[in-house]
Design a protein around this nucleic acid. Sequence first.
DNA 1: TTTGTCCGTCACGAGCTTGTAACATTTGCT
DNA 2: AGCAAATGTTACAAGCTCGTGACGGACAAA
Lengths: 228, 228
Amino acid sequence: MAATILVVEDEPAIQELIAYNLKQAGHQPLRADNAEQATNLVANALPDLVLLDWMLPGLSGIEFARRLRADKRTRAIPIIMLTARSDEQDKLQGLETGADDYITKPFSPRELNARIKAVLRRRAPEMTDDMVQLGGLKLDPASHRVTGNGEPVDLGPTEFRLLHFLMTHAERVHSRTQLLDQVWGDHVFVEERTVDVHIRRLRKALEPTELDGLVQTVRGTGYRFSAN
Amino acid sequence: MAATILVVEDEPAIQELIAYNLKQAGHQPLRADNAEQATNLVANALPDLVLLDWMLPGLSGIEFARRLRADKRTRAIPIIMLTARSDEQDKLQGLETGADDYITKPFSPRELNARIKAVLRRRAPEMTDDMVQLGGLKLDPASHRVTGNGEPVDLGPTEFRLLHFLMTHAERVHSRTQLLDQVWGDHVFVEERTVDVHIRRLRKALEPTELDGLVQTVRGTGYRFSAN
DNA sequence: TTTGTCCGTCACGAGCTTGTAACATTTGCT
DNA sequence: AGCAAATGTTACAAGCTCGTGACGGACAAA
C-alpha cells in the first residue's frame, strides 16, 4: 500500500491535513496548489492516484481531469474528486469526466482512506498490500514473502514485482510493453526481450515448488498467469 | 504506559477529576483551562496525547485541534475529544478535524483509560507499555529491559526504540524512510544508511542470544522482524 | 577536564541484481 | 521437411545494495 498520491488542492490547511493523513496511512503524498503545478509533477513522474479538488484557481479540477484522461500516458491513473458541494449535478459531471470516485467535503480521514483503498483495489490491485493467493501460490506484499505449496520462494525485487502484477491481473495476457510499463515503470527504457529473461528467472525460482507452469507464454502476444 | 497527557478542559472540577484519574493510571497529566494555555504548554514540550474539551472559552476545541494538525511539529499527536453532547453531528465534525477518538460526557474513568490505551495502541503501538514477546525475545517498555532466551540484552536508546517498533510491527517490511519516520521522528534529517548501522548494532547486541536472525533484511525494500 | 557512551556519517568490499547479447530451441507455416 | 519468427536459456559485465568497521563530535557523569 505504498502508493504515491498526488494531492491537488489550493486550500493549504486542507492540503496539509490530507497529506498528513496519507502519510499516516503509509502513502507518499505529492502536493500541488493548482493544475499547472500538478501538470509539472505528473510530467516528472506518474503518481499512482490523484486526489483532485473540484474548485481550483486557474484551470479547474474537471478540466485537469479531462487532460489527464486525454493523454495516453496518464489515462490510466485513478482519480478521486474532492468537492465542497454535495449536489448531484456536480457528482454526475465529475464522474463523466472520468473520476473514479467522489468525496464530498468535509470528509473523515477514515472515509478518505477507505475510498483510496477501494479505488486502488479496483484500478491497481498491485498497489494495495492485500495478500494474493492463487493456484497454490501465496504472495504477501506486507511481509514481502512468497510461498508455493507452503514452501518459501526466493525472488529478486523485479521478479517479486512481476509476479505480484501477474497474480493481481491473472487470467489475462500482458504484452511485453504492458509489463514494462506496469512493472518497470514508465520512464524506463529497456529492451523488450528483458521481460523474457525475468520471466525465465521467475519460472526458475518457482520450479522447486512445481508451480512454474502457472506462468504461461502466449505466443505472439505476451505472458499470462493462470491458475487453471 | 507512562504517557504525558495534556488535558484541556475549562471546568475545574472535571479537569481535576480527569487529572486524578490519569495519575492513578500512571500517566502524567498536564492541565490547561483554555486553548491559549494549552498552546503554551505544547510549545514547551510535546505531550504524547491530548484530551480536548469540545466547548472551550475563547478558541474552541475544534479550532485548537485544527491548529495542532496544521503545525508539522504537533501533527502526529493523538487527540481524544470530550463533549457533553451526544449528538452525531458533532461526532462527525470532530473526526473530520482529525480527532482520533471521541468520548461523551459523562464518562467513567474506566472508559477513559480504555480509549486512551486504544488510541495509543492504534496510533503508536510502540508507545504503550505493553510487554512484547516474540520468537524468544522479550521486550518490556516499562522497565526498559530486553531479554533473549532469558539472557539480558544490552541496547542503546535508539536500538531499543528500533527493536520496539519492529516487534510491535512484526512480519512486515519497513523501508528505511518509514523507519526513520517512525523511530527517529519525521522532523529529523538523517541519512537513510544510518538505519543500516543501527540495524547492525541491534543485531550485534542480539548475537549472544542467537536471536539476531529475527531481524531480517529484505533486499531492495527494507527490514523486517520475523519470528518464523 | 577526563572519561565513557551514543550517534551519524563515511568508505570499502562482498555479493546480489539487472539488462543485454549471443546462442539454442520451439513453433507455425508453406 | 525447410524456413523464419518467436521464445527459451545462458553467460557476463556493470551497477547497485547492504554489511561492516572506523572515526569524530555531542553530551553527560565523574
